[in-house]
Design a binder for these strands. Structure first.
Lengths: 209, 209
DNA sequence: CGAAATTTGGAGTGAATATTCCAAAAAATG
DNA sequence: CATTTTTTGGAATATTCACTCCAAATTTCG
């Protein structure tokens, strides 16, 4: 009598095990955000997470697998934060609160690091197929939550029917990404401020009455 | 009697030497564009450029020095191409020709690779100080050539006095960068098209009469 | 409690990769 | 043409880094 076959037989994780695992992911995410994936060695992560190499490979098959977890971690962190602002975007004040949230983060970090998802995207898209897929999904999800916010504004009657939430959402996300990159390069909040304000000004041209 | 001191005593380069040197830079630029700087090994470049390792280190002190040359090469290539469109931006048709130029490139490359400067920026800004400085200058120069184009439109009377070429140039460059990143991630020209068209539509709101 | 499973420590391995070195070929120079 | 300079070939080195292995400690669970 055999036990039921389980293809993806993952070893069970103790509470302690789960803590160690997520400590590794968080440490890796921070390092990879600060210095990129390629520059971040397994040893770096080991030191930051206070673990030995056996632990590293006990929880992750290889570096690539850790990278996928980092992508997922950053995705939920970034999108979760933004959704707080986007889920009830009921006015231009709310839109500007979202803008302020983004700008404030950059100022707090001295304009270092750029977007946690954008930098992973740029580094991984061409060289890691699985990472590429994950990142693409993340961006679709992000775009979608912006679109929903704009649709909500439209339904609330804040925007007139000339406003196209699909196009505006994509253009906003692009402005956001480009603005963050330029802010990172310049070490100056101006680009992200102007990129977002210009797009918001454009959206304002669809304001009802 | 001493020869005059020359701190940065560079060995003279024969015509043949210059050819080899630039062959190395071009090969490195292509590889680094396709797979990133970190992923591109010196050996990769040697094969692509058909040279031996002694030649590599005869022309460049170390990989970092080659990277700086690649940045400079990509800068002149990208900005040179764009300047052809931006230097006499005399109408909205000219603005749209620039847009088409950018979009067509992406389509031709199957939306792979993103922006040659943007990807270098994202990979290097946080980990290579000298590269950071070069890239920052490149972006300032690029922004400046966009600004000059818009000023030209303003002076020609295409735009009214509410148009701020400084802000619009920065916002356009941000939209361009973000649009290229999303197009690269999605492998779809839509993001760059919508990002640019939305900004151009916004600029259109400053059209005179 | 006691067997089984999980977690951890840390040394060790092998491949990838940047860089060096020496000597020969080719080109420039006077 | 002889000498100096530049260019090239290719082997050798040294270091970084992902990943493996084995045994011990700890935890889980019947």
């Amino acid at each position: 009598m055999n036990k039921p076959l389980n293809i993806t037989q993952k070893p069970k994780l103790t509470k302690k095990g789960q803590e160690t695992r997520s400590r590794i992911i968080v440490a890796a995410a921070e390092l990879m955000y600060e210095q990129g994936v390629a520059r971040t060695t397994i040893e770096d992560v080991q030191h930051k997470a206070n673990i030995s190499s056996s632990q590293m490979y006990h929880y992750f098959k290889e570096k690539k697998e850790l990278v996928l977890e980092v992508i997922s971690y950053q995705t939920s962190k970034v999108i979760g934060n933004h959704r707080r602002y986007l889920s009830d975007l009921d006015s231009f004040e709310a839109l500007n609160a979202w803008r302020d949230f983004i700008v404030d983060i950059q100022i707090k970090r001295n304009c270092e690091g750029g977007c946690p998802l954008g930098s992973l995207a740029s580094e991984l898209v061409e060289i890691n197929t699985e990472a590429h897929q994950e990142i693409m999904s993340s961006f679709f999800e992000w775009e979608d939550s912006i679109r929903k916010g704009l649709r909500y504004m439209l339904n609330r009657g804040e925007l007139n029917s000339n406003a196209d939430p699909d196009k505006l959402a994509l253009a906003l996300l692009a402005a956001l990404q480009g603005g963050l990159l330029l802010t990172q390069v310049r070490r100056d909040p101006e680009p992200i401020i102007i990129a977002l304000d210009t797009m918001i000004e454009h959206i304002n041209s669809f304001k009802k009455i």
